[in-house]
Structures are given as C-alpha cells and as structure tokens.
Simulated assay, not measured.
Amino acid sequence: MDQFDDRTRANMDVVLEEVCAELPHGGDHESRKYIAERLIEAARGGKVSLGELTYVGRRALVHLLNRHRSA
C-alpha cells in the first residue's frame, strides 16, 4: 500500500470499515481480505475517490454475500 498517497489510503480504510460493518462481527479475515484486495485493485486503476471506492467496496460485499448464499 506504500504506492498510494495518504488520502487514498485513508479513503480505502474508511470504505473497508464501513463495508465490513455490514458483515457479522465486522467480517472474518477472508471477507475483509477479499474486499481490501478489490479496493487495492480499484485504486491501482485510478479509482481513488471516496465515492468510487465505496462503489467498489459495496460491489465486493454483494459478491461475497451472493457467493455465501449459493454455497
């Protein structure tokens, strides 16, 4: 994460916490890791605003929830 500026890192942290707060107990390690990886990919692709990262984080959450339902 050293490749990102302070604002981007802060935005990523905020989004990760907000999105994971919707999971039971704030999410397990694997769920948090999955969402964090999606946020990192987005930031590397230039999506660094709070709105863009929130969108990516929520999409990752929906994907996780759908994956758990079908399992």
Rank of each mutant, 00 (worst) to 15 (best):
G46L: 01
V62M: 10
R38I: 00
I40C: 06
R32Q: 14
A71P: 11
K47C: 04
V62P: 00
Q3G: 03
A43F: 07
R32A: 11
N11Y: 07
Y34P: 00
A21G: 11
A60S: 00
V48N: 07
R69P: 07
E18D: 15
T54R: 14
M12W: 06
T54W: 10
E22K: 05
L61D: 02
D2Q: 11
K47L: 12
G26F: 03
G26K: 03
L65D: 08
E18T: 04
I35D: 02
A21H: 07
E30T: 11
E22V: 04
G45K: 08
M1P: 01
R7C: 08
L23D: 05
G27Q: 04
D6T: 12
S49T: 15
A60N: 00
D28S: 11
E30K: 12
E37A: 11
H29D: 14
S49H: 10
I35L: 06
V56F: 02
D6G: 07
D28R: 14
M12F: 04
E17G: 03
N66V: 14
L64T: 06
G57H: 00
V62R: 14
R38L: 00
R67N: 11
V62W: 08
L53Y: 01
Q3P: 08
V48R: 07
S70F: 07
L50P: 03
R58D: 05
G45H: 03
A10E: 15
D5M: 05
E41I: 10
V14M: 15
I40F: 01
V15W: 00
S49Y: 09
V14W: 10
T54E: 12
R9M: 05
E41K: 14
L61G: 02
G27K: 06
V15D: 00
A42V: 04
I35M: 04
P24K: 15
V48M: 07
H63I: 09
L61M: 05
I40N: 06
L39I: 02
F4K: 09
E30R: 09
M1T: 13
H25G: 07
H68S: 14
G57E: 00
L61F: 09
L65M: 13
S31W: 06
E17L: 09
L39F: 08
K33E: 13
S31I: 08
G27P: 13
R44E: 10
L23R: 03
D5N: 14
D6H: 10
L53V: 01
Y55E: 15
L53K: 02
L53I: 02
V48K: 06
G26Q: 05
L64F: 08
E17N: 13
A71C: 10
A36H: 13
H63R: 12
C20D: 03
P24Y: 13
E52W: 01
E37K: 10
V62H: 09
L64Y: 11
L23W: 09
E41V: 14
E52K: 09
V15R: 01
H29T: 08
K33H: 12
V15I: 05
L23G: 05
N11S: 07
K47H: 04
S49G: 11
D5A: 06
G45T: 05
R59F: 01
